[in-house]
């Protein structure tokens, strides 16, 4: 029942693997040990002869620990001048193809590292590994999003060089990853033209927290009744500062502007 470790089941625990090596980490992330293993560990070590209550005013952010670790990650990226982008979308929007194309086309321009998040399988990281980019696969088990601690632990295995680009492909889900800062400089939401124009209104939190919106699969537009302007208008209602890129990761159309944008960010 636990999202981050699956309540002690190894099958559903978080596993982080570096592609092309035997290195991997199993771990029970943020809070999971406390969820089920020791309900009475902190029970009264001393006798109380009288009852008393303490009122503690906390005013503490519930996701404060994730935020703190995200800021550690951000400091690490800034110190090494690494551009970190968190790519979020629903499943099937073409994130992995978009990454494969970006890595292949930017060879010789920038060192690119990838962290892949999926509930199960290493399929995506294996695809990325074939492009030659060092890749880490995080399997979140039952978890529906990556968190900053998973990224922090992955960085130790990945060991990215200074002045490089780290692309994090989050778990395909337009809801949960919106709430978890990973320490990225930019959040990019990918939406494909085979989805509805009202996606930004249906899942506003993700569009509200993103900086960039990549509209993918534009090569399919002639076959679809899809109103690109309507999608942009809806996205701008949620987040008037969004910057758009219209691309087809399959055909390569529009990818040049995206590369120019990346280059401007690492210059």
């Amino acid at each position: 029942m636990c999202s981050t470790c699956g309540c002690g089941s190894n099958e559903n625990g978080v596993v982080i693997k570096k592609m092309g090596t035997e290195e991997h980490i199993h771990y029970h992330s943020d809070g999971t040990q406390t969820l089920h293993s020791h309900g009475h560990k902190h029970a009264h070590p001393h006798e109380h002869s009288h009852s008393h209550t303490h009122e503690i005013k906390l005013e503490q952010d519930i996701l404060g620990k994730n935020q703190l670790t995200a800021e550690y990650n951000r400091g690490f990226f800034e110190a090494l001048n690494i551009l970190c982008i968190n790519l979020v979308s629903s499943p099937g929007s073409g994130k992995t193809t978009f990454l494969e194309r970006s890595i292949t086309d930017l060879k010789g321009v920038a060192d690119i590292y990838v962290i892949e998040g999926d509930q199960q399988t290493s399929n995506d990281a294996e695809r990325i590994n074939k492009t030659g980019a060092p890749a880490i696969q995080i399997n979140t088990g039952r978890g529906c999003h990556l968190d900053s601690e998973m990224v922090s632990k992955s960085l130790r295995l990945l060991n990215p060089k200074p002045h490089s680009i780290l692309l994090i492909e989050n778990v395909g889900n337009l809801v949960c990853p919106a709430m978890f800062d990973l320490g990225e400089a930019l959040r990019a939401v990918i939406v494909s033209v085979t989805e509805g124009e009202d996606k930004p209104l249906k899942y506003p939190d993700m569009f509200h927290t993103s900086h960039v919106c990549i509209i993918n699969k534009t090569d399919l537009l002639p076959h679809l009744k899809f109103d690109l302007e309507k999608l942009r208008d809806n996205a701008l209602k949620v987040n008037p500062k969004l910057q758009f890129f219209e691309v087809s990761a399959e055909s390569g159309q529009g990818m040049g502007e995206w590369y120019q944008f990346l280059k401007s960010k690492i210059a």
Partner: peptide, 18 residues
Amino acid sequence: MHELSIATSILKSAEREV
């Protein structure tokens, strides 16, 4: 279902305070 992560974070803070 990020509510699970939210609940887990709340529990962790609560255990620390106790």
